[in-house]
Protein backbone atom coordinates (compact mmCIF):
# COMPACT_ATOMS: atom_id res chain seq x y z
CA UNK A 1 0.00 0.00 0.00
CA UNK A 2 1.42 3.32 -1.05
CA UNK A 3 0.79 6.09 1.39
CA UNK A 4 -0.31 9.48 0.17
CA UNK A 5 2.41 11.69 1.54
CA UNK A 6 1.74 14.96 -0.23
CA UNK A 7 -0.78 16.79 -2.35
CA UNK A 8 1.26 15.84 -5.41
CA UNK A 9 0.89 12.18 -4.44
CA UNK A 10 -2.85 12.64 -4.14
CA UNK A 11 -3.06 14.29 -7.54
CA UNK A 12 -0.99 11.55 -9.14
CA UNK A 13 -3.23 8.96 -7.57
CA UNK A 14 -6.28 10.74 -8.84
CA UNK A 15 -4.93 10.70 -12.40
CA UNK A 16 -4.13 7.03 -12.06
CA UNK A 17 -7.57 6.03 -10.86
CA UNK A 18 -9.55 8.39 -13.04
CA UNK A 19 -9.69 6.07 -16.01
CA UNK A 20 -11.58 3.56 -13.85
CA UNK A 21 -14.47 5.96 -13.58
CA UNK A 22 -14.28 7.37 -17.08
CA UNK A 23 -17.00 5.09 -18.40
CA UNK A 24 -19.38 6.22 -15.67
CA UNK A 25 -18.54 9.90 -15.90
CA UNK A 26 -19.05 9.88 -19.64
CA UNK A 27 -22.39 8.20 -19.14
CA UNK A 28 -23.42 10.98 -16.82
CA UNK A 29 -22.68 13.68 -19.39
CA UNK A 30 -23.45 11.74 -22.54
CA UNK A 31 -25.65 14.48 -23.97
CA UNK A 32 -22.70 16.87 -23.89
CA UNK A 33 -20.19 14.65 -25.68
CA UNK A 34 -19.99 12.67 -28.91
CA UNK A 35 -22.12 9.54 -28.85
CA UNK A 36 -21.37 6.67 -31.17
CA UNK A 37 -23.72 3.73 -31.36
CA UNK A 38 -22.51 0.65 -33.14
CA UNK A 39 -25.07 -1.79 -34.50
CA UNK A 40 -24.05 -5.10 -33.10
CA UNK A 41 -26.53 -7.72 -34.09
CA UNK A 42 -25.35 -10.92 -35.81
CA UNK A 43 -25.03 -9.11 -39.15
CA UNK A 44 -22.98 -6.30 -37.63
CA UNK A 45 -20.66 -8.56 -35.71
CA UNK A 46 -20.15 -10.76 -38.78
CA UNK A 47 -19.11 -7.68 -40.75
CA UNK A 48 -16.55 -6.70 -38.14
CA UNK A 49 -18.46 -4.28 -35.90
CA UNK A 50 -16.55 -5.39 -32.81
CA UNK A 51 -13.12 -4.70 -34.29
CA UNK A 52 -14.46 -1.46 -35.68
CA UNK A 53 -15.67 -0.36 -32.25
CA UNK A 54 -12.29 -1.06 -30.73
CA UNK A 55 -10.58 0.82 -33.54
CA UNK A 56 -12.85 3.83 -33.09
CA UNK A 57 -12.25 3.90 -29.35
CA UNK A 58 -8.53 4.13 -29.98
CA UNK A 59 -9.10 6.73 -32.68
CA UNK A 60 -11.17 8.90 -30.33
CA UNK A 61 -8.48 8.66 -27.69
CA UNK A 62 -5.77 9.56 -30.19
CA UNK A 63 -7.72 12.61 -31.35
CA UNK A 64 -8.59 13.47 -27.73
CA UNK A 65 -12.28 13.45 -28.52
CA UNK A 66 -14.45 12.66 -25.49
CA UNK A 67 -16.86 10.13 -26.85
CA UNK A 68 -19.10 7.48 -25.44
CA UNK A 69 -19.43 4.23 -27.38
CA UNK A 70 -22.40 2.00 -26.97
CA UNK A 71 -23.55 -1.03 -28.81
CA UNK A 72 -27.06 -1.28 -30.04
CA UNK A 73 -29.38 -3.71 -31.71
CA UNK A 74 -29.68 -4.23 -35.47
CA UNK A 75 -30.52 -0.92 -37.14
CA UNK A 76 -32.19 -2.69 -40.00
CA UNK A 77 -29.58 -1.98 -42.66
CA UNK A 78 -28.07 -5.46 -42.68
CA UNK A 79 -26.73 -5.07 -46.20
CA UNK A 80 -24.83 -1.95 -45.16
CA UNK A 81 -23.10 -3.32 -42.05
CA UNK A 82 -21.18 -2.28 -40.12
CA UNK A 83 -23.45 0.67 -39.42
CA UNK A 84 -22.93 3.30 -36.78
CA UNK A 85 -24.96 6.21 -35.50
CA UNK A 86 -23.02 9.35 -34.62
CA UNK A 87 -24.55 12.06 -32.46
CA UNK A 88 -22.50 15.19 -32.01
CA UNK A 89 -23.92 17.65 -29.45
CA UNK A 90 -26.01 20.28 -31.20
CA UNK A 91 -26.32 18.30 -34.43
CA UNK A 92 -28.86 15.74 -35.54
CA UNK A 93 -27.74 12.14 -35.30
CA UNK A 94 -26.43 10.59 -38.52
CA UNK A 95 -26.25 6.94 -39.48
CA UNK A 96 -23.29 5.79 -41.58
CA UNK A 97 -23.14 2.50 -43.46
CA UNK A 98 -20.28 0.28 -44.63
CA UNK A 99 -17.98 1.73 -42.05
CA UNK A 100 -14.49 0.30 -42.10
CA UNK A 101 -11.42 1.66 -40.38
CA UNK A 102 -10.74 4.08 -43.23
CA UNK A 103 -14.30 5.37 -43.19
CA UNK A 104 -14.09 5.68 -39.41
CA UNK A 105 -10.98 7.86 -39.75
CA UNK A 106 -12.85 10.07 -42.17
CA UNK A 107 -15.91 10.33 -39.95
CA UNK A 108 -13.84 11.26 -36.94
CA UNK A 109 -11.44 13.64 -38.64
CA UNK A 110 -13.85 15.33 -41.02
CA UNK A 111 -17.38 15.03 -39.68
CA UNK A 112 -16.86 15.07 -35.93
CA UNK A 113 -13.97 17.52 -35.75
CA UNK A 114 -14.72 19.86 -38.66
CA UNK A 115 -18.41 19.23 -39.31
CA UNK A 116 -17.65 18.42 -42.96
CA UNK A 117 -20.08 16.12 -44.70
CA UNK A 118 -18.80 12.62 -45.36
CA UNK A 119 -20.07 10.10 -47.91
CA UNK A 120 -21.97 7.10 -46.74
CA UNK A 121 -24.79 8.62 -44.72
CA UNK A 122 -27.86 6.43 -44.70
CA UNK A 123 -31.03 8.50 -44.91
CA UNK A 124 -33.16 7.41 -42.00
CA UNK A 125 -36.82 7.82 -41.45
CA UNK A 126 -36.51 8.22 -37.71
CA UNK A 127 -34.74 10.71 -35.56
CA UNK A 128 -33.02 8.52 -32.99
CA UNK A 129 -32.77 4.82 -32.57
CA UNK A 130 -34.42 4.62 -29.25
CA UNK A 131 -35.88 7.18 -26.96
Amino acid sequence: MTKVKSLADLKAMREKFQSNLDVREKGDIQDEIVQVKVAMATCGIASGAKQLMEYMMEKAEALKIRAVFTQTDCMGHCQLEPTIEVKVPGRDPLVFGHVDNKKADEIFEKYIVNNEMVEGVIPVNREVIDK
Partner: peptide, 11 residues
Protein backbone atom coordinates in the same frame (compact mmCIF):
# COMPACT_ATOMS: atom_id res chain seq x y z
CA UNK B 1 -11.30 4.75 -1.66
CA UNK B 2 -9.76 4.82 -5.14
CA UNK B 3 -13.10 5.62 -6.74
CA UNK B 4 -13.62 8.37 -4.19
CA UNK B 5 -10.19 9.85 -4.89
CA UNK B 6 -10.83 9.89 -8.62
CA UNK B 7 -13.99 11.92 -7.94
CA UNK B 8 -11.85 14.68 -6.40
CA UNK B 9 -11.99 12.94 -3.04
CA UNK B 10 -9.64 14.30 -0.39
CA UNK B 11 -8.70 17.09 -2.83
Amino acid sequence: IEEFISRDGYA
